[in-house]
Simulated scan of single mutants.
Amino acid sequence: MVLVTTLIGTEAMVRDRLRVWRAAGVDTVRPYPAGQTLRARLDTLGRAMELVREVDGRS
């Protein structure tokens, strides 16, 4: 269940999950980026935004 409802794993896994959600009509994602420091969390958030743009065709 965790893998189906969260964006965890490799970038390929996250990209695939975003595609599944997009196909199901999901148009809003609320990220909680992982990281030990603020910088790490911001980096994770930035990469997540890039993956969303890729899936959405706006890369």
Rank of each mutant, 00 (worst) to 15 (best):
R22Y: 11
W21R: 00
T37G: 00
M13V: 05
A48Q: 12
R17C: 13
P33G: 08
D43N: 13
V4K: 10
L7I: 02
G57P: 01
L3H: 10
T5N: 14
A48E: 11
V26I: 13
G9E: 01
A40N: 06
L45P: 06
W21L: 12
R39K: 07
W21V: 09
Y32P: 00
L51I: 07
R15V: 11
E11G: 06
L3S: 08
T10M: 03
L7K: 00
L7V: 03
G25W: 04
R58K: 08
M49K: 11
T37S: 03
L45N: 10
D16H: 05
T10Q: 02
R17A: 09
V26K: 04
T28N: 12
E11P: 03
T6M: 06
L18K: 04
V14E: 07
R19Q: 15
A23C: 05
G25N: 07
G57W: 02
M13H: 03
G35Y: 00
D56E: 10
V29K: 05
D16W: 02
L45K: 04
L42C: 13
T37F: 01
Q36M: 01
A48W: 14
E11Y: 09
E50T: 09
D27P: 04
V2D: 14
T44D: 01
R15F: 09
V4E: 14
A23N: 04
T10A: 08
D16C: 00
A40G: 11
E11N: 11
V52S: 03
R58M: 11
T37E: 00
T37R: 00
V14C: 11
G46A: 10
A34Q: 11
T6L: 10
R15H: 13
Q36T: 03
A34M: 14
Y32S: 04
R30N: 15
V4L: 12
E11I: 05
Y32V: 04
L42N: 07
G25C: 06
L42V: 09
R30H: 15
G57L: 04
L51Q: 01
T37M: 00
R17E: 00
V20C: 07
M13T: 08
R53C: 01
T37V: 01
T5W: 11
I8C: 12
G25T: 01
R17V: 08
D56K: 00
R17K: 06
P31G: 08
L7C: 07
R39F: 05
A24N: 06
V20S: 06
R30Q: 14
R30M: 15
R47Q: 12
L45A: 11
A40C: 08
A23D: 14
D16T: 06
R39N: 05
V14H: 02
R58F: 08
Q36L: 10
R53Q: 13
D27G: 12
A34R: 11
A24D: 14
R58L: 15
M13Q: 12
V2W: 15
A12L: 13
R17T: 05
